[in-house]
Design a protein around this nucleic acid. Structure first.
Lengths: 340, 340
DNA sequence: TTGAAAGCGCTAACAG
DNA sequence: CTGTTAGCGCTTTCAA
């Protein structure tokens, strides 16, 4: 039973106190902190010494209020527990950290309602920019914004924002090619139900490969998963094979779905890859752990992070957008689940 | 090549504007917003209508500056790509969201240097509280703080902070018991090298079970992993079996390590669970996907989140800390990796 | 090279 | 019930 006494309310150091201690004005202290020149080397040293001595951290609320710019970026992400998204988020945070920006991460759970609430909060926090990872139902162009993975509507994209994506069409194409090359005759596509541009493009690439192989694309072989999760992958697998038991190849728009499929097929005693070959997308670590290990299309997360942060920083600096859309190459990672 | 024009700088609505539009003073607007009474129903409606009409969001910077309280909490986490941590983080965010608090998530990568930098940033952002998930090298009690999973040093804990953990000793005990029950005679313990209280306690429980079984605890059977990762689990497995090839049971202080062990043993052609039984800790989804599926000790993440947020909220409200330490029950999840 | 002072948007006395 | 006003900590003219 302690009596609570936090220091939070204790008067922290402020420019005013520092000014007094250094025998200069607050303006000078501010100039030194922001290295705006117009102070002598001697003054600079005096002020800096005090700052260091007391480990002074400028109040970002006051600064933000004054200059209408916070060093905070909002990140909106559908599901932070999905390793693919958490890895992007982490890389972005690390890149922003180098610019001394903090991030507020918001989990939207693919729900417009929640996304809108988060946007209000971010607005009230006066964030300096937004990064949407696979989201953007309510694109509000109040802020410099980067979209990753999910293309915003065209009007929005024509405006002042940036969109970064994998070469999803190529990804779908090489995925289907891999299955075709290894002898699959009836290839299904399991995808997230929502109308995400990245998953659409993967479908387009898949269809192209199918048609190039002289086969016809069968809409019955497209299965929609309610969520991107192991469970929904398993459910989609059941739905697929109950209707099309002779399917011999499955391309999933996400590793999580693919792993759910493999797990379900294993449980039912099917042999992957002998009876059915499976391929995923993302290359998350679980893909290399499942048995058989999952062939997948690798997305270049490092490029996502560096491109998005560079773009956002120059937007915030008021520079004109040189390039609206960036397409990042993908590559096939061959593992057991598609072996002959 | 668009010319950039963001609305960010456009004058947003403020209490002043709203006051003018409603024909009242700023004080009244503020009272309505914060529901501090002393306004008529009629005034309230007038103000609220305008707020709704323009979707006005109060400037939290100004508010925070004024009341020395931000609606922002800092969360420090070792590795957001570890599903166990991302799930805790998500649950905490959701709980805080209900209180209208935002979170700044900082990835410490188990590095003191980075943790210190993040602390400075959080301080400059004037967060209202801190939640350390499995961290806290530099416990700064400037803020109301909750520690999860890793016990802070005792002096710190005596102060005004809260610590929440699983019943790790019991977890270690039931894990080792499960292996003993299923016939293991030589049981190893693979753990993260850092001196984390939770992993220490798991060791204590493990030893207790070993000794109760009339066996002696062999320090050679304790292996330290450099990181909590699949790769380090595999490496630890190699180190273990090269020195102790007759080991027939492995308890890992983390699922990630355990899955790394199983994967490595599979690769080497060992049969899990016939030759070696393996058990983990956390119950992350990968545990149910690996073959053989991993028996593990489930941690109650929901309780972590609700306990920590409740505690933090009352600390922030200035209430005395009623309870310093919370211990959350664990439970054994039996799967294939320990079957006889 | 330096300082005085205004003001960012908000809340909380205080006065009516 | 309502308004006036000071001031949170900071940056930025403007003047010296």
């Amino acid at each position: 039973m302690n009596e609570m006494v936090y220091n939070t309310r204790d008067k922290q150091l402020s420019v005013k106190t520092i000014a007094e201690m250094a025998g200069v004005s607050v303006a000078t202290v501010s100039r030194v902190i922001n290295q705006n020149g117009r102070f002598s080397a001697e003054t600079e040293k005096r002020v800096k010494d005090i700052i260091k001595q007391f480990d002074y951290q400028p109040n970002q609320l006051a600064r933000g209020l004054r200059v209408s710019k916070t060093r905070v970026i909002g990140i909106l992400v559908p599901d932070i527990t999905n390793e693919f998204f958490s890895r992007i988020t982490l890389k972005i945070q690390q890149a922003l950290y180098a610019y001394n920006y903090a991030t507020i991460v918001c989990n939207t759970n693919e729900t417009a309602e929640i996304e809108i609430q988060h946007m209000k909060m971010l607005k009230s926090q006066r964030v300096s920019g937004l990064i949407y990872i696979s989201g953007g139902i309510c694109g509000d162009f109040f802020y410099p914004t980067v979209f990753i993975d999910r293309r915003p509507s065209n009007e929005d994209l024509d405006a002042t924002c940036v969109f970064i994506e994998s070469d999803n069409r190529m990804g779908g194409y090489i995925a289907a090619k891999e299955l075709l090359k290894n002898g699959c005759k009836k290839i299904a596509f399991i995808r997230f139900k929502d109308n995400i541009s990245s998953h659409e493009e993967r479908l387009v690439g898949y269809r192209q490969a199918i048609e190039e192989a002289g086969m016809t694309h069968d809409p019955n072989l497209i299965i929609y998963a309610k969520n991107v999760s192991l469970e929904e992958g398993a459910a989609a697998s059941d739905a697929l094979f109950s209707r099309n038991p002779d399917t011999d190849g499955v391309f999933c728009s996400t590793d999580l779905l693919a792993v759910g499929v493999i797990k379900r097929l294993n449980e039912k005693g099917w042999n992957v890859p002998r009876q059915v070959k499976v391929i995923g997308f993302d290359n998350i670590s679980i893909a290399n752990v499942i048995h058989p290990s999952l062939t997948t299309v690798h997305q270049d997360i490092d490029s996502f992070a560096s491109l998005s942060v560079n773009a956002l920083m120059s937007m915030i600096d008021g520079e004109p957008v040189k390039q609206n859309v960036y397409t990042v190459p993908v590559k096939l990672i061959t593992r057991e689940s598609t072996r002959i």
